[in-house]
Design a protein around this nucleic acid. Sequence first.
DNA 1: ACCTGAACACCGTTCAAGT
DNA 2: ACCTGAACACCGTTCAAGT
Lengths: 196, 196
Amino acid sequence: MHPHRSRGERAGLTRAVVLDGAFDLLTTHPVETLSLRALARHLGVAPNALYSHITDKSDLIEGLLDHALAAVQSPPARTPPADALAAIMTSTYDVLLAHPALVPHYLARQGSRGPNATHLGTSMLGFLARADVRGDAAGEALRVLIVYTIGFAALTTSSAAEPRAPLSQEELRGNFHNGLRWLLDGITAHRGSAST
Amino acid sequence: MHPHRSRGERAGLTRAVVLDGAFDLLTTHPVETLSLRALARHLGVAPNALYSHITDKSDLIEGLLDHALAAVQSPPARTPPADALAAIMTSTYDVLLAHPALVPHYLARQGSRGPNATHLGTSMLGFLARADVRGDAAGEALRVLIVYTIGFAALTTSSAAEPRAPLSQEELRGNFHNGLRWLLDGITAHRGSAST
DNA sequence: ACCTGAACACCGTTCAAGT
DNA sequence: ACCTGAACACCGTTCAAGT
């Protein structure tokens, strides 16, 4: 199975190499769900060799999620708040669509752990504050925007997997955009009113 | 493994029995993901016996999704539209939380196939029309509401799985409610303006 | 038609080695 | 410390029987 290396030889694995390999596998074979064994095959190592660089499959997923979020574009600081938030969410939506296999995992972690996700969150809170949405309402608006964006990405990717899709990708993207506008209108209309 | 039955004896399985058994397993062991082998164990049959009553695992899931949606409460017909829509989505949210293992599967199918989901959809379209939201805008609003509700349910259930949850279930439910209001405000404010 | 036994091609993960 | 071999306890699904 792995004829190139004998018992003690190094394969040159690193956490970065493993992550890049997984990213490779995910982008070249977007349909199938990522498995550690397939990743090991892709890297030319035994399945359990991965455990020297990751603690777990969920640890790998975690790393991939944040790695992907690095591609999200942030608008200039003086962009009108609602437009800026729409731009960030739309960019996130596009990034998620590029990695369908990761989408189901995003909702679970709310995009909260990694540095890229954190940076994105604080950036969004900044724009929300500029729209006079602060405190509890800002935290709630943040979660609502994230849930909506990831949820719609999940809908879009699963719809893309079906052969006779009722809606095209363009229609779904337009639907996402309109819903995002409704949401931002609702959020900014009620600014400052944190409720319980 | 199955000492009670010899080679040709019937186990009394039916599609309904299989579905109920799966529902049983899902509600008594909400955490673990449903497997056909565990379901067969629960029913006291061999794993492949299920294939006489379901075509597939996804077929089983499909059946479960619609089966669960039967519990969603519909408000009286003359309820103010926005309140009615909020009530339907909140009831759906609660039903989804009762079956966490199903939540990841809901977004994929948009709740569109089964009779219960269809009925719910037409009911929602009725209330949307009463709020002067029709045509393309109504379809888009419908998808947005569904995506938001399932998405937030996914966030809530995954957050419940974590030991040290940053937010309580009550806080998340309040968050869901507020976001739903923002969304409905946005939807009804732009009534009639179908866009592309 | 309904069910079992056995098998196939997979999983994630662990444990005991080897260098 | 890094990797392999082998194994464990699982999966979904198929195929050939038996009644």
